[in-house]
Design a protein around this nucleic acid. Structure first.
Lengths: 139, 139
DNA sequence: TCCGGATATTAGACAAAGTCCAGATTGCCG
DNA sequence: CGGCAATCTGGACTTTGTCTAATATCCGGA
């Protein structure tokens, strides 16, 4: 994949290409996620976006993340019962979750094969397959 | 596997065999989970256990479910960002989650093969591998 | 039987994540 | 400039889950 610079200007283009009106707040939130290339929770996004002085409200952060999700700009990762993580990497991949530290990292889907899954019930379509490897530091 | 009757008496034995002191409340909670053989959230357990008249407090329901978890009597299933489900089936298996209805069902692990997972970081041990197939009713 | 300690249960206060709403702002187009 | 649609905001609210201090229950020994 092309090397990419996650400038705010490029964020505007990214948003437009996903049919999202690039407002100031949306650009900041996208920048927070994409410049880090990390899994962030809504709270973490809040904190990052409001480091210097309060700029973006909680409601906007939640609204925006939900919008990004609908438009396919980010993915939702559900591994922790207490909070949702948002993942700027939308290419097919799985996750490694360190239970004790909360650290979450990607596993490329290319190298992993999953076979023998049963047929879906009639009229159902797969929305996604989430594979989560939960690990812990050895005692 | 042996056909099993999930009477309250058998629950007491099940609890003892898992090193859990079988109190009245614990038996009721175990009975709720095992007689149904379904995935229940803490709220649902609360509701079931207190149908006729209030018998078991919220704190006890949460304490007990956590205890069952530690003792390996049930498994935790994290698929919904808003609540945790408890699964009385502890044999290796995966899950099929119907996103729009919230319905959760089991996929036997026997028939599914997963290969090509990367080596774990040094000093880490796998705690579990969760495979979740998210499906949706076709539009 | 009665006592005492350990274990279990309880109500209710609290915390954290997320939702909702009505009003204020912004940006755009004629 | 005026007006409309889209966006943003603070803050109240809901839900899930945790914590705590007080009470209840259980059980073994004198």
């Amino acid at each position: 994949m092309m090397r990419m610079h996650y400038t705010r200007d490029n964020m505007a283009g990214l948003l437009r290409s996903h049919d999202i009106n690039p407002t100031h707040q949306r650009i900041e939130i996208a920048h927070a996620l994409f410049s880090r290339q990390e899994h962030l929770s809504a709270d973490q996004v809040m904190a990052i976006v409001n480091t210097r002085h309060s700029e973006t409200s909680k409601a906007t952060v939640y609204n925006t993340l939900k919008l990004f999700l609908e438009k396919g700009l980010v993915r939702e990762v559900i591994v922790d019962p207490s909070k949702v993580f948002f993942d700027p990497n939308t290419s097919p991949h799985h996750h490694l979750y360190e239970v004790d530290t909360g650290k979450l990292s990607d596993i490329d889907a290319e190298q992993v094969q999953i076979s023998g899954l049963p047929l879906l019930p009639a009229g159902m379509v797969t929305e996604g397959i989430d594979l989560i490897v939960r690990v812990r530091r050895k005692a």
